[in-house]
Amino acid sequence: MAAKMKPTRVDFIAIALVLATGLSWWLGEGAALTQGHLGQAATLAVLALAALKGALIALDYMELRHAPALWRRAVLGWLAVVIALVLLASLLPRP
């Protein structure tokens, strides 16, 4: 089935999504842990990877790249706001 087709953008995106997941796993599994906590730089990196993965899914898998701008802005705006708030809550000094 797949062998008959040339790799397309959606195939490369699937590979990129898996690689980004592997990187997040590597960071969280111990590479960036200090006394059980993820460092600030690693937290930023993990959330940046999440934003990248989310944007690729929205633009290419949901085909919002070619959809009306309103829908594209709504989904990407949701992603940006949620990631920003999670980042803020993760990096703020603990009370």
């Binding site: 997040s24 796993w25 969280g28 059980g36 993820l38 993990v46 959330l47």
Partner: peptide
């Protein structure tokens, strides 16, 4: 899940 995974499983 792309938000849920890092939020719940990775960032700690």
């Amino acid at each position: 899940w792309m938000v849920l995974f890092p939020l719940v499983y990775v960032i700690r």
